[in-house]
Design a binder for these strands. Structure first.
Length: 491
RNA sequence: GGCCCCUUCGCCAAGUGGUAAGGCAACUGAUUGCAAAUCAGUCAUACCCCGGUUCGAAUCCGGGAGGGGCCUCCA
């Protein structure tokens, strides 16, 4: 099934065609680093990380850029509040952001350019825009003239004349039109500033993305992503200034992810209803968060709640228990299995077994879902079905019994490798969950209790055996009696 | 006021013209000394409402109701 991507510009799914065959240039708007990251900041990175994984799997060479906005009004205000410099604050919050990305297994970002390191490139673009009559200097500022671009508003269906009617636009007598936006802002005393042909100042919000994407990826991007809330004005303005400057199409596919909601309204720093990643990860694993973000289609909003996270955590438990089962059956850790990095047809063997046919079918379903505008929710459904099929096979062929057949184990192994392959595309299960077992002493003590209980059961002293299990239960430990002996886990 | 989008089982959620995936919860059975885990089965005659198009619609069109996003910084 060919890959299809929903394009905000055309409001429909389109077959994916890159500018240069085999290569994908992807740019996603990153954070303004003035506060610790909240979960909303992770929606885009997790989604586009998955997009990159899948594109790479399909054979594309993907270059992914996420910018860091390290100069801005909010940074200036916040640094002043904290009695520190913009630079120091930006560095600290960038480190926090990177840490969050790492925890959520977002590994695919190739470049993270800083706005402050690309001032000359921005100045170059502004010069060009002024020369072409698309921008003008005014009182130390530089503005983009929206009336100079007949296409202005095409991304969001905005008419510049109607913008005039909106009373919320900042009125400034430096602007020619109310919809004009600042490319460059003259700096006030005490603010970070850079020299420019128009005097000391700092960049406006939108120009950095044009400058950095152009520098690192060229004039036409294959994918430009970001939150739905960035469509206007940010992406509209980026689009206008970039195309006015280069005369080339700026982006082939605009992809916008839905926003995370707290109750009925979106989570946002400006509203103040944010949940920091650091706080969140004390209650729920990073993998739970990642799965939550991927379980809904990326264009839909996701409602954040503790209950929802707990629910996702419970469903993850099925996978974790299966991985332990796999370890028991095959004597190998699931996490150490190598996942194929490129797509290849699945060989069901000959004659194909019913089991491997089922595995193959589910693999196709999974891949078809991702090919249809990165439908991770549908793909995850197939992943659960695959899990059930694997457990069913292990049950039916009694793979945990000593008398099992080795050819059945080999067949099972092939099915498990598909689970490894597919879950890797979602960035799941790259390492064992944090709170699996215990330290060496705990393991020894648990073995002692399990042995004592086994003796009690052997002597048919079920009252004692059940008491041991029940009291462990009160400590949050669940015992599982299996064919090969008793195992335990934290509930 | 303008521009987008959404509404599917108790909850989450996939599905974009061919007769409703999956997860959580619940219930029943197999298994177990009893549990846990796993498996099996049950769980939406039905997709916000009303019209229309069609042999056929959750899926397309029109209208209505409810909810959300953007038009100001926001991932």
């Amino acid at each position: 099934m060919p890959l299809r991507v929903y394009n905000t510009l055309t409001r429909q799914k389109e077959e994916f065609q890159t500018v240069e065959p085999g290569k994908v240039r992807m740019y996603v708007c990153g954070p303004t680093v003035y506060k610790p990251s909240h979960i909303g900041h992770m929606v885009g990175p997790v989604i586009f990380d998955t997009v990159k994984r899948f594109l790479t799997y399909l054979g594309y060479q993907v270059t992914w850029v996420v910018n860091i906005t390290d100069v801005d009004d909010k940074l200036i205000v916040r640094a002043r509040e904290l009695g520190t410099t913009v630079k120091e604050l930006a560095e600290r919050m960038t480190a926090d952001y990177l840490d969050c990305l790492k925890k959520l297994n977002v590994t695919g970002i190739d470049y993270m350019p800083r706005a402050t390191e690309h001032i000359p490139e921005m100045i170059e673009i502004m010069r060009g825009l002024i020369a072409k009559g698309h921008a003008y200097a005014s009182g130390g500022d530089v503005y983009f003239d929206v009336t100079s671009d007949p296409d202005y508003g095409k991304l969001c269906n905005r008419d510049p004349d109607q913008l005039e009617a909106g009373a919320r636009i900042e009125v400034s007598d430096k602007k020619r039109n109310p919809g004009d936006f600042a490319l460059w802002k003259a700096s006030r005393p005490g603010e970070p500033s850079w020299d420019s042909p128009w005097g000391p100042g700092r960049p406006g919000w939108h120009i950095e993305c044009s400058a950095m994407s152009m520098k690192l990826l060229g004039q036409t991007l294959d994918i430009h992503g970001g939150g739905l809330d960035l469509q206007f004005p940010h992406h509209e303005n980026e689009l206008a200034q970039s195309e006015s400057y280069t005369g080339q199409p700026f982006v082939r596919y605009w992809m916008h992810n839905g926003l995370l909601k707290m109750g009925q309204t979106k989570m946002a720093g400006s509203i103040g209803n944010v949940v920091n990643i650091a706080d969140l990860l004390e209650k729920h694993s990073a993998e739970t968060v990642r799965l939550l973000l991927l379980s809904t289609h990326y264009r839909s909003p996701i409602e954040y709640s503790d209950e929802r996270l707990a629910e996702v955590g419970r469903s993850l438990g099925h996978f974790y228990r299966f991985f332990e089962r796999y370890q028991r059956i095959c004597g190998r850790s699931f996490y150490e299995l190598a996942a194929p990095t490129r797509h290849a047809p699945f060989d069901t063997g000959s004659p194909p077994s019913a089991f491997l046919n089922e595995v193959s079918r589910l693999r196709s379903t999974f891949l078809d879902c991702l090919s249809d505008d990165f439908n991770t929710g549908g793909a995850i459904g197939a992943l659960y079905e695959l899990l059930t099929a694997l457990n069913r096979f292990a049950d039916a062929r009694q793979l945990e019994e000593p008398a099992r057949r080795e050819d059945a184990v080999a067949e099972f192994e092939r099915g498990v490798r598909v689970l490894r392959e597919l879950s890797s595309l979602l960035g799941l299960f790259h390492q064992p969950p944090e709170s699996g077992g215990g330290d060496a002493l705990v393991n020894q003590l648990m073995q002692l209790l399990i042995d004592l209980r086994a003796e009690a059961r052997k002597a048919k002293n079920y009252a004692m055996a059940d008491q041991i299990r029940q009291r462990l239960g009160q400590l949050g430990i669940i015992l599982e009696d299996r064919p090969g002996g008793t195992g335990w886990r934290r509930g």
